[in-house]
């Protein structure tokens, strides 16, 4: 049943993504009128799918794809939250396709053999995963915001007001969204990493520290911290902030990809 709901949600994400792309090409804002209701329904169904998957056996089914699905869900939640706070749907241009692809991958590949790991039965691991994924979503969202900021800044400097600048929210608003999400994401990321370390320490002892994914995670956390500090201390935004968050994002991506190389995160029982 979980997969059924997920697949409907995926189709709806696809639909709202199409609307978002059409809205990008057109002058009028049809995005909020059509996309949001569709996305709202999709997120609800997605939630149902997640709950059902969880009740059916937690993430044991396929941890990688489950977390893809969860990540897509969290990003959509942030998207809707940002809309309610700032009345802007612009991040949707990026968020909707990403959520679509992530959940599509989850919806298509769920037949993989179940992984049996004693780890996945402990509550700690879920705390770790959910916290980290919230951190990821916030980080990624903030990266989108800084790219939009750059685009907007460029068109304002070029005095081209009918291009992208006409469609995006005000520069300060974008900046505000990005900064707020960084602030929100940081504690989640930090506590999530701590939770992960605790689990790994218990499970694997001190050697977990040499795992590539964990090293990358720490690097990412470091960049994240630097980003927050420069923003808070000297108000870095625009190009410098975008560069930093691009770096953090790249680190996050490789952390994600490291699942394929990380012994710790493959959940193979040893």
């Amino acid at each position: 049943m979980s997969l059924f709901w997920l697949r409907i949600a995926v189709s709806l994400y696809g639909l709202s993504m199409l609307y978002a792309l059409v809205a990008l090409l057109r002058r009028r804002e049809i995005l909020s009128r059509t996309t949001l209701p569709i996305a709202g329904v999709a997120v609800t169904l997605h939630f149902v799918a997640l709950v059902e998957a969880f009740r059916a056996g937690g993430m044991a089914g396929n941890p990688l794809h489950q977390s893809e699905s969860l990540l897509a869900f969290l990003m959509m939640l942030l998207f809707i939250g940002v809309f309610y706070l700032y009345r802007t749907t612009s991040p949707g241009i990026v968020v909707l396709p990403i959520a679509f692809l992530l959940s599509l991958s989850a919806a298509l590949a769920q037949g993989a053999p179940p992984v049996i790991s004693p780890l996945l039965r402990s509550g700690w691991i879920y705390t770790h995963i959910i916290l980290i994924l919230i951190g990821y979503s916030a980080l990624f969202f903030s990266f989108i915001a800084s790219v939009l900021y750059l685009l907007h800044e460029r068109s304002l400097k070029r005095k081209d007001l009918n291009g992208i600048a006409g469609k995006l929210p005000a520069l300060e608003t974008i900046d505000n969204i990005g900064y707020r999400l960084l602030l929100i994401g940081f504690p989640f990321m930090t506590i999530g990493l701590i939770a992960g370390s605790v689990i790994a320490q218990m499970q694997y002892g001190a050697s977990y520290f040499q795992d590539p994914k964990i090293i990358l995670s720490l690097l990412m956390w470091g960049v994240y911290t630097v980003m927050l500090y420069t923003r808070w201390n000297s108000g870095w935004r625009g190009r410098r902030a975008a560069l930093l968050s691009a770096f953090a994002f790249a680190a996050a991506l490789s952390v994600w990809a490291a699942n394929y190389f990380s012994g710790v995160h493959r959940f193979v029982s040893r």
């Binding site: 304002l156 600048a165 520069l171 300060e172």
Partner: peptide, 24 residues
């Protein structure tokens, strides 16, 4: 049509631009 969506005088263009930067 987008006929009412743009503003015309210099002073209001200044306001429009300021809004694009600062929002409120």
């Amino acid at each position: 049509t987008a006929i009412g969506s743009s503003v015309v005088s210099v002073a209001s263009v200044a306001v429009e631009l300021a809004r694009k930067i600062f929002g409120n």
